[in-house]
């Protein structure tokens, strides 16, 4: 079975990256070290492994999965190869909302962050729909307006960061799309959402398969099309927004992972979302390892490395896209 073999291959790849993620960095450990550190490591080693690398690895995996799943869902509703939460401006709006929260209400409990991100994400989606209601059928318009909105939101984020240079330390680190400094306290921000939204997405898979025949055909097969589209989009925006609330705006994972998954698995949603989630996890984990292994002890935001692969791919998609 194809799904089985591809997933096993990707799981092995993921496991390899996990071991790299746990061993590489400013303090280099070997795999056998990990076990002994676990048993009786020095305080530093134990701290590095348990309080830094492990949560960071888990969060990179979850955020990668979440962004990839969000991209799959957006693409199947909008029927648009250029669509993904970052290109539609959803992630940058979520980032704006979070930066706003961090600057104007620095004492806010960390648990408010996902909700701020959600409000930002949903507002952006609402604004986008408002601006494109007459043109929803034209994918290129949606992508262009989304990109423009995204640029606008990012510009406001930059403005806020320059206006409040003293308050920004936290915000700055957070919004560039970094997995740095993520610890166990960030896990509850994303895990509960994924535990609801991933099974939800799997539950919708067959309906999304039917929807891929087109709205009219799907409706004539007894599907509540509008209902399905709205629920799917809401879930996709929620997935993207909670990812932003943990890692900031990481672009292109939501675009690239579903594409590769569809290339590998064909048209059905269930295998596509499973593989896309694995790929998303792998991409983000790899980017994070790169980001900290390239010039230790300096660390770069993982988002930069994802963009270095993702942006050329997006340009490639646009040049190949024939329906302007």
């Amino acid at each position: 079975m194809r799904l089985m073999s591809v997933s096993i291959f990707l799981l092995l790849m993921w496991a390899l990256l996990v071991s790299l993620s746990l061993t590489q960095g400013a303090v280099v450990l070997s795999l056998s070290d990990i076990w002994s550190v676990w048993q009786q490591g020095t305080l530093t080693e134990h701290f590095v492994l348990w309080n830094h690398r492990l949560p960071r690895m888990i969060i990179a995996t979850l955020v990668g999965m979440s962004l990839a799943l969000s991209g799959c869902m957006v693409q199947s509703v909008v029927r648009n190869p250029l669509a993904s939460p970052d290109i539609l401006g959803v992630t940058s709006a979520a980032a704006l909302a979070v930066v706003g929260l961090l600057i104007y209400w620095p004492d806010a409990n960390v648990h408010w962050i996902p909700f701020a991100a959600l409000i930002g994400g949903f507002s952006a989606a609402g604004l986008l729909l408002l601006l494109t209601t007459k043109r929803l059928a034209e994918p290129s318009h949606l992508a262009l307006i989304g990109l423009a909105l995204g640029a606008l939101f990012s510009a406001i984020v930059d403005y806020l960061l320059s206006k409040y240079p003293l308050e920004i330390n936290g915000a700055m680190l957070w919004m560039t799309g970094s997995v740095w400094g993520r610890n166990w306290s960030h896990l509850p921000l994303i895990l509960p959402w994924l535990m609801v939204l991933v099974p939800g997405a799997i539950y919708l898979c067959y309906r999304l398969d039917v929807l891929s025949l087109g709205q009219e055909k799907a409706a004539s097969l007894g599907l509540k099309v509008t209902h399905l589209q709205v629920v799917t989009l809401l879930m996709a925006i929620a997935l993207a927004s909670v990812s932003v609330s943990v890692c900031g705006a990481i672009a292109f994972v939501g675009l690239v992972a579903p594409h590769i998954a569809r290339f590998l698995m064909g048209g059905r949603h269930f295998p596509v979302i499973i593989i896309a989630m694995l790929l998303g996890a792998i991409i983000l984990l790899a980017a994070d390892i790169f980001a900290r292994a390239i010039a230790p002890p300096l660390e770069f935001p993982a988002g930069i490395f994802v963009a270095m692969i993702g942006a050329p791919y997006f340009i490639f998609l646009i040049t190949r896209y024939k329906h302007w």
Binding site: D209, S212, G214, E216, K217, R262, M265, G266, G267, R268
Partner: peptide, 14 residues
């Protein structure tokens, strides 16, 4: 009732 629309979308890889 079943409906065959004028230009149904053919999904890839099916």
């Amino acid at each position: 009732l079943a409906l065959l629309t004028q230009t149904p979308i053919t999904p890839d890889g099916i």
